[in-house]
Amino acid sequence: MHSEHASLFAAYHHLEPAEPGMVMARVSCVMAKNLLTLVRPDTELDAVVAGALQHSAREAIDLPVVGDMVLADSRGEKTMVVEVLPRRNILLRKSVVKDLQAQAIAANVDVVFVITCFGPDFNLRRLERYVLAVRACGIECTILINKADLVESAEIDELLEEIRGILGNVPIHAVSAHTGRGMDGLGAYATSGQTICFIGSSGVGKSSLVNALAGEEVMATSHNRHWDGKGRHTTTMRQMLFLPGGITVIDTPGMREFAPWIMDESQVSLAFDDLEELAAQCRFGDCTHTAEPGCAVLAAVDDETLDANRYEAYLKLVEQTRELQQRRTLRGITERKQREKSSSKALRKHLADKGRR
């Protein structure tokens, strides 16, 4: 890591440990659950997550993720990560394995590039889920539609208009990693000290876009399969790359499922800021935007200034958020009862054993 990539260290300078052997570093790669690569401005370290940190983590998202700033103890045979420092933000999605848990993708990100591509595999609903997930985390989001060299300009304009109707005011760029088309429009994001996270399905050209942004080949790429035009997996783990000009990129493997992880309705507001602006004009402060008179959101749907599909996506996300809250509450009650039952059983056994002595 060059000094131009180390601006985040300056923001955490006041947390730099004074104790000899203790270091502050950034997680650049998570190779397994507890095996990490850390970077400092002057070195790179292999590390493991300390047992105490593993046991104190209430959920998996409390453990180190790529992009995290951490404190590590380098005095033993192995460098041990002992603390995850406070995060500026964290990109989450709903776990595809554990229904009521979140999965952490990256931390301390300035902007997320949601990558898709023109062609038969384009899926607007999947793109919508990606964007909602990012915006619900309070992180700036930009859509890059790769392979613009394969379609006509009229088709590009038509698709961009459709996307804007569904996703609101999210910046969208039609680009081509192959020809360089549209890449100059990314200059506002690709500045020194920025951390950009790339997410998207496999085969959309994330690695090719990273190379195009770098101006040189920093990642291996693979050609599309000839029988269906889809790309192959290139990235196999989340990893941090340091590009010329001080740009830090977090590249991720292809993820077809990226359901938003939203625990309260304030996060829904982040994902639908345009609806929130309309909601401020509703007659009632507690308007649900479903049937109330004087609802500015419903009026916007009626006069088609708000796309009906976007409105429906909003209602669906609100419903899913409430359902998830209820399910997690019920699970919490069940787990508490199970702990109380186990404690009572252990106490009865202890008293019985004591009485036999």
Rank of each mutant, 00 (worst) to 15 (best):
K206M: 09
I247P: 01
I166K: 13
V249H: 03
Q194K: 15
E216G: 05
S201L: 05
A212L: 06
I247R: 01
W261I: 11
G193W: 10
E162V: 12
A177L: 11
E217I: 06
M255F: 12
M237W: 11
F242V: 13
G182Y: 07
G182K: 02
E162G: 04
H233I: 08
S222I: 07
G231Q: 11
A220P: 01
L209A: 00
E158C: 09
F242L: 14
T248H: 03
V170L: 10
P260I: 09
F242C: 11
A220F: 06
V210H: 04
L167P: 12
G187P: 00
G203Y: 03
K206Q: 06
R238L: 08
R256M: 09
V218S: 05
E158V: 06
T195M: 02
P260R: 11
G246Q: 00
A188E: 12
N169V: 11
I163M: 08
I172Y: 01
T234Q: 05
K230N: 14
I196L: 14
P171I: 10
L159T: 10
H233L: 12
H178S: 14
D157Y: 02
T234H: 08
H173G: 06
C197E: 01
L243A: 14
I156H: 01
D157T: 09
A188P: 01
E162D: 09
H173A: 08
G165N: 06
V175L: 03
L213N: 00
D251L: 02
G168H: 09
T252A: 05
T191I: 13
A174Q: 10
I172K: 08
I172A: 04
D251V: 12
E161N: 11
V210D: 09
S202C: 05
I247G: 00
A177W: 08
H233Q: 14
G187M: 02
G187E: 05
M219C: 13
N169E: 15
G203A: 03
L243E: 09
M240Y: 02
A220N: 12
F242G: 06
W261R: 13
Q239I: 04
L213P: 00
I163P: 04
V175K: 04
I166N: 07
S222D: 11
N211W: 07
A177E: 02
I172E: 01
F242M: 15
V204S: 00
E158H: 14
I172T: 07
I199P: 02
D157M: 06
P244F: 10
S207D: 07
G246M: 03
I262V: 15
H173S: 09
M240H: 01
V218K: 10
